[in-house]
């Protein structure tokens, strides 16, 4: 049926290749890339597609890479992106040089003053980060987190608004157990100087993939909002992390709830565990069923004979 199809152009192939890479499940991009490469059989097309698609995947999955020189991990996010392959790690004030396709950090350089926030902003950022690190260490055994100033980083003191983004990313890959997963949350925090309020908007996203002799994926998302008072750096940090913790705990509980509902209620909408009669289907009666039907049909048409055909078919 595909015989009439004309050969795809390189552009079309690149488009398809990008789609595969960008939509790969958490932690499986390298496996997808390997299979894709052997399906494409064209390294130039693959390399060009990979160069575009890997950065998109890495940023949307908030991947965490180890920096050389004992600086710890850096998160690859659009909030810390300075250039295509340079990502700020606000914790250490280092800039990580990233190889997107290999998914490694090739080197680091200290951030310049222009790349870092003003002392006034840094005080708030640092306090929030310290509080967040404590929470993330408790809640996410394999998690990394970062606090970025995305707006107003040069504000020198009270009187202006500014904006932070909090990123938490946890990933777990056990390819030998055919299981991978990731938890990502992004909190956008606007410091409203005029009304002395912080507005929080959070987005939690959870994915899991189990693929031993099958392919089953979870994809869950939730948005939440909250607000708190604009106070000093330490009080604000405590209040913000308290809210983040509460919302994320609630979300975890609601995920558990969704799983509990699944067996009891939700799955039943697709197929019941047992028939409405609560007993297995009476297949052994199907012979009688079809005979009865035949009798009924025949008697309706004025004949009572059981068809010969049935006798021969079901001896």
């Amino acid at each position: 049926m595909a015989e009439e199809e004309t050969e795809l152009s390189d552009e079309q192939k690149k488009g398809i290749a990008k789609w595969f890479i960008i939509n790969a499940p958490a932690g499986e991009i390298q496996y997808v890339a390997k299979d894709l490469k052997s399906v494409l059989k064209d390294d130039d097309v693959y390399n060009e597609a990979a160069a575009v698609a890997f950065p998109i995947y890495n940023k949307s999955h908030l991947i965490s890479l180890k920096m050389p020189g004992g600086y710890g991990d850096v998160l690859v996010t659009s909030y810390g992106e300075l250039q295509d392959n340079e990502y700020l790690d606000p914790k250490t004030a280092q800039v990580a040089i990233v190889d997107h396709v290999k998914q490694v950090c090739k080197g680091v350089r200290p951030a310049t003053d222009e790349e870092l926030p003003s002392p006034y902003i840094e005080e708030y950022r640092y306090a929030l980060e310290a509080e967040l690190l404590k929470y993330a260490a408790e809640a996410y055994p394999k998690g990394s987190c970062s606090v970025y100033c995305t707006n107003g980083k040069d504000v020198e003191g009270p009187g202006s608004d500014f904006e932070f983004v909090v990123v938490i990313s946890a990933a777990r890959n056990s390819p030998h157990n055919f299981c991978n997963g990731s938890w990502r949350t992004i909190w956008n925090i606007v410091f409203r100087d005029d009304i002395q309020i912080l507005e929080l908007k959070g987005k939690c996203q959870v994915g899991a993939h189990y693929f031993e002799e099958g392919n089953v994926q979870l994809d869950a998302k939730r948005d939440c909002r909250d607000s708190t008072m604009f106070q000093g750096p330490d009080e604000t940090a405590t209040a913000v992390v308290y809210l983040i913790r509460r919302h994320e705990n609630e979300y975890m509980a609601s995920l558990e709830g969704s799983y509990l509902d699944l067996s009891d209620n939700t799955f039943k909408e697709l197929r019941r565990k047992l028939p409405v009669t609560r007993t297995l289907f009476p297949w052994h009666n199907t012979m009688q069923f079809s005979l009865k039907r035949e009798i009924r049909k025949n008697s309706e048409s004025g004949s009572c004979a059981i068809s010969e055909r049935h006798k021969s078919q079901f001896p």
């Binding site: 408790e138 809640a139 996410y140 055994p141 394999k142 998690g143 946890a170 990933a171 777990r172 299981c179 991978n180 997963g181 990731s182 938890w183 959870v206 899991a208 993939h209 189990y210 099958g214 089953v216 994926q217 979870l218 994320e248 705990n249 975890m252 509980a253 995920l255 558990e256 799983y259 699944l262 067996s263 799955f267 197929r271 565990k273």
Partner: peptide, 26 residues
């Protein structure tokens, strides 16, 4: 098939979520 989707496959994704964020705190 229904049973293993319900118990095994969905169960494994749930286990994964609980590994990412252990729920004792919850």
């Amino acid at each position: 098939l229904r049973n293993s989707l319900d118990q095994v496959y969905f169960g494994k994704t749930r286990e994964m979520v609980c590994t990412l964020r252990p729920s004792n705190e919850v």
